[in-house]
């Protein structure tokens, strides 16, 4: 175990990420990871941690929306957050790039670390953080500008391209990585809003990729899309997970089963406070969940 920890730290330093700390709280993450290692040969307890939550709680004024959530999200894997409406999954996701800062009266407790840094720290610049932790929303929201300008917007502000040709390369690369290039390469100057819903969503993903993030958050990314567009986004998520850490909130359990490596199930009780019930490798969670409440939810026997 000592050796494994050392390896994690060394590689962690190389990739500038936090060490694999096991968090306490509502779920025994150590046991989960050990079970996971047994259940899924690809994932082991020495996997690099991208995002570490320790006893995270979220308050909207006097209302506690999320309580005591602790788990580690692994690098270059897709983690799905599932649970019924109001379980706090979107609230939790929005903590990961401090989108909750924008909602007055919101308070986040506990620690969330990205690259070993507590992102709730006062010295952390939320704008810089959001460059590392990008987000894709429910409804595609291209800026009211051309396809090209949509992609160039972030890199321009961050000074990521030193010349026009560098910027053109970055635009092409981002659109290619978002599996959109072939469909738009001849109309880069047309407005982003002229694209179909699925294409707009891939444009938004390309826009996120253009600023070279480490983590991509997706909040119900396919809920406004038709099945074909949905499958395209899901394929894209599978491809992107080779290079990025993806965290996706979805109401669609089949989607979670299709795209994710890990699944976290959250549930709120009478008092409407969401808690983490189970965090397992996706295959395990959907075939042999450990918690009765997970079983009841995924088999549709709730209430």
């Amino acid at each position: 175990m000592t050796n494994e920890t050392t390896t994690t730290t060394e590689t962690g330093a190389e990739t500038n990420l936090s060490t694999g700390r096991m968090a306490g709280g509502g779920v025994d993450v150590k046991a989960t990871v050990a079970a996971a290692a047994a259940a899924s040969p690809k994932k082991t307890s020495t996997d690099q941690v991208a995002l570490s939550l320790n006893n995270v709680g979220v308050w909207y004024g006097q209302h506690e929306a999320v309580q005591g959530v602790s788990f580690d999200i692994y690098q270059r894997a897709t983690t799905a957050l599932i649970g019924p409406s109001g379980c706090g999954k979107s609230t939790l996701l929005r903590c990961f790039n401090r989108m909750n800062d924008l909602i007055p009266g919101t308070r986040v407790t506990g620690t969330i670390s990205v690259e070993g840094v507590d992102i709730m720290g006062k010295d952390v610049d939320a704008v810089q953080l959001r460059r590392h932790v990008g987000m894709v929303f429910q409804k595609p929201n291209p800026f009211p500008m051309s396809i090209k300008e949509n992609i160039a917007f972030g890199p321009k502000r961050l000074g990521l391209a030193k010349s026009k040709s560098q910027m053109d390369d970055l635009i092409e690369e981002s659109l290619r990585d978002a599996a959109l290039w072939d469909e738009v390469k001849d109309k880069l100057d047309e407005p982003g809003t002229s694209l179909s819903g699925g294409q707009q969503q891939r444009l938004c993903i390309a826009r996120v990729l253009a600023v070279k993030p480490d983590i991509i958050l997706m909040d119900e990314p396919c809920s406004a899309l038709d099945p074909i567009a949905t499958l395209k986004i899901e394929d894209l998520m599978r491809t992107l997970a080779k290079d990025y850490t993806i965290v996706v909130v979805t109401h669609n359990m089949q989607q979670a089963a299709r795209v994710s490596d890990w699944t976290a199930f959250l549930l709120a009780g009478e008092e409407r406070t969401g808690r983490l019930i189970e965090y397992s490798p996706t295959e395990q969670l959907f075939t042999t969940p450990r918690d009765k409440r997970t079983e009841d939810y995924i088999t549709g026997r709730f209430g």
Binding site: M253, F286, T287, P289, E295, I298, T299, G300
Partner: peptide, 9 residues
């Protein structure tokens, strides 16, 4: 019905 968990098994 897309059965899950115990139902799927």
């Amino acid at each position: 019905q897309a059965p899950m968990a115990r139902d799927l098994r």
